[in-house]
Design a binder for these strands. Sequence first.
DNA 1: CAGCATCCGCCACGATACTG
DNA 2: CAGTATCGTGGCGGATGCTG
Lengths: 126, 126
Amino acid sequence: MAKKPKSDRRIFHNNEDCPVRNVVAQIGDKWSLLILFALVDGSDRFNALKSRIEGISQRMLTQTLRDLEREGYVNRTVYPEVPVRVEYALTELGRDLVKPLYKLVCWADEHQQEIHRARRSYDEKS
Amino acid sequence: MAKKPKSDRRIFHNNEDCPVRNVVAQIGDKWSLLILFALVDGSDRFNALKSRIEGISQRMLTQTLRDLEREGYVNRTVYPEVPVRVEYALTELGRDLVKPLYKLVCWADEHQQEIHRARRSYDEKS
DNA sequence: CAGCATCCGCCACGATACTG
DNA sequence: CAGTATCGTGGCGGATGCTG
């Protein structure tokens, strides 16, 4: 039996059932990964997150947190004190997602040297 | 001894040594993942890739392949026939990168239902 | 066949000002 | 403190036409 022809692979279809496209759509933006990893060690407040994630604007932090909440990765809890306190935490799904993400980040960390070498070699040739 | 304060974690710094930002920068774009997975089963030609990856333009395929080549994930081989034939294949580094990526995609695939539920639930509330 | 060059729309993202 | 609202812009990416 021959293996499936490549063109049959569902993975490349242009719809919301394609897992690869889903991954890119959900965590391929500029800030999602950073926020997820910022919450790995426990819940945190809005402004604390903002100062820990270097370079993020208020607008993008709010927006990305809303997206992550919508996907079910993050919980938002409001404590009606004065002044108000809002805590963000990973859901169980979020903690679970971080596992494969962590593997990926570790991989990238371990292979930084190789990649830098490849880049230099490529740039020299051109 | 207490654990490191969160703000100390190198992971969030805004420079090219941050592995999380590196990951996002390298494969967070619209097409890199799709191309990498398109090459998992073996090398392929430019136009074959183009037709297998639904929706990609010639311009973006060229550009993303060049980036992936520069990072050392993809090899480009020109066969000087007439007409010319160009084959793209994963390097060893590329094949290695796909492993953690594959775990991630599988995770997303397995949890699609949960995520869809979370989304619907979130949308109803608002 | 495998591309490069050019033009251009759009929207992700940042900056700033204001509010419950 | 934790956001909204509004505006401006760079650059990602699509469309089209041309070449070795």
